[in-house]
Write a protein that binds this DNA or RNA. Structure first.
Lengths: 189, 189
DNA sequence: TTGAAAAGTTGAGTCGTTGCACTTTTTTAG
DNA sequence: CTAAAAAAGTGCAACGACTCAACTTTTCAA
């Protein structure tokens, strides 16, 4: 890697670090892009050469998420259903956000700012097609099967559903119970 | 109704009309709020006294939607399941958008602009709580039952899912089939 | 060494949106 | 009925996110 790319990476990292620090300190809306640029000692325009938007400064670590999602489906234990595997994966991701206090503050920031909620949701939904393809593959149906796409969409949407509900874990489980067993018929209630 | 309110209503209508005309003509992003204000012969500030955002200029008619949604659940034929009723209602709403050519252009506009898609989705999702309550009522469970909330959320989310897919009707039906019967067990495939 | 491409930086500008001040209308008090 | 005060409408100027067109610097091959 040449000197140039190293410097570019350093600037990028400095921007992401400064942004995270300022956001956690003052809140997303109380920090302007100018502030971040100044803290990293570059001009505001330069910020947008490295990141497509103000929100993107926070979601710099987006990789691996898709891979973990696909793996949860593909490498699930023998005999476990796809919705069940996705449920457990979602619960696992969710508890990751409440263990580490550093991470907890980050999660709290993203969930309390409407703009960041939307952005996070869109980031997550970009994996819909890949997840649908993985589901189709393990169940042996055509890759564009609408049922697989629907399951993928709803499974990803579940975190958005649980957000803001009183008992998040119970909401996640209820959502996946619906996806796995369907709406209970009139007699079974 | 006094003269003042009449004038206010007239200005509001003029703004909504001018906005719709310009948006259909040039596209949402190619029209600035200043253009709309000028077309209605007011200042840009006045626009935001009547509408909370640029997007709101298009979604002026949002009422009745929630009422129709609730009615579809509450007044469904004897013996019809809740997901089935919601499926038919969703399909009915969807075909409304493709019949009338005027409406078709409107739908095409809202679906082709990312900002408008998000806004429309949020408008729709505001009905989640009311729909969940209606579902809970007809099935005789506590109003805050997470299963009902999940069904409400996913049913509303279905239009967002079908959007942008090749065969929208088939996608809607597949989504509701999943919600009604659940993910088919390994043997049934 | 040189010269052109790639990348970084900048200042000026656009667009959505909001605070502050000003004008007009409606309501209230004398 | 009139004056004052409250309320509502309107516009100018400004802020913050983001883009564009130019300019400067860095890199690297010939």
């Amino acid at each position: 890697m040449g000197r140039r790319e190293r410097k570019k990476a350093a600037t990028r990292q400095a921007l992401a670090d400064a942004a995270l620090r300022l956001f956690l300190d003052r809140g997303f809306d109380q920090v302007s892009v100018r502030d971040i640029a100044e803290a990293a000692d570059v001009s505001t325009t330069t910020v947008f050469k490295h990141f497509p938007s103000k929100e993107a400064l926070l979601f710099d670590l987006d990789s691996d998420r898709e891979a973990a999602l696909i793996a949860a489906v593909r490498d699930r234990p023998e005999g476990m259903s796809v919705p069940r595997a996705l449920c457990e994966h979602t619960l696992r991701m969710h508890s990751d956000g409440t263990d580490d206090p550093e991470m907890a503050r980050f999660v709290e920031l993203t969930e309390s700012t409407p703009g960041l909620r939307e952005y996070g949701r869109r980031m997550l939904m970009r994996h819909e097609a890949a997840l649908a393809a993985a589901i189709a593959e393990t169940t042996g149906v055509p890759a564009d099967d609408p049922g697989c796409a629907a399951l993928a969409h709803f499974a990803l949407e579940t975190v958005g559903f649980a957000r803001g509900r009183a008992d998040a874990r119970r909401s996640i489980e209820a959502a996946f119970a619906l996806l796995e067993h369907g709406w209970p018929a009139a007699g079974q209630r």
